[in-house]
Amino acid sequence: MDSILALQSEIIKAIEQTFTMVSISVAAAIIVGMPVGILLFLTAPGNLRANRPLYSVVSYAVNLVRSFPFLILLVALIPFSRMIVGTAIGPLAASVSLSVAAIPFYARLVEQSLRDVPKGVIEAAVASGASMKHIIWGVLLSEARPGLVSGLTVTIISFISYSAAAGTVGGGGIGDLAIRYGYQRFETEVMAACIVILVVIVQLVQWIGSFAASRLDKRK
């Protein structure tokens, strides 16, 4: 117990760092990943803006980034992080790599949820003379709402876990704390405390995500 109390301020700092990294990468997932997912959906063969070359290029790029083990991506992007945030260490630098990983991750989930929108509903909108922008906002994003939120929940939870690797570049965070104190220094209590914190956070995120998704779903 003493070791945990002694590390209280460290733990709070770690929670903040995790929060920073996850918020930034999830924001990137929404701001960039969602449009990429929409692009993938629209340009896929047989869809509204079918464009095989464009689809192939974007899809290939998404697969490429997703196939990197995260730790390797993190290291490979060190020069890029330095360019963007001016440093290669710390939570902000780790956020750059996390964002690069989060964008294609969420883009695929967005593409998948959009595919679940019934073709007929999209067709009815096309038949009514709606513009592409109107169809994207009023049909695709509206009908896929529950799936988009569930996908976001999955993304947040995955990136809480990915952020543990951020310790490699001094990114900090709860996962990093658990590894440094709990694993490398055999301070089991600290490890346990970190895991409990992570479990609580993940449960909470999942609970909020599931609740929001079911509230948004009017198909019942």
Partner: peptide, 19 residues
């Protein structure tokens, strides 16, 4: 082919907005 996440009124409003 109605929008399942929108109310009946919003379904009709969709095409009015399109116009």
């Amino acid at each position: 082919n109605l929008l399942s996440n929108e109310t009946c009124a919003a379904n009709v409003e969709f095409v009015l907005k399109a116009a």
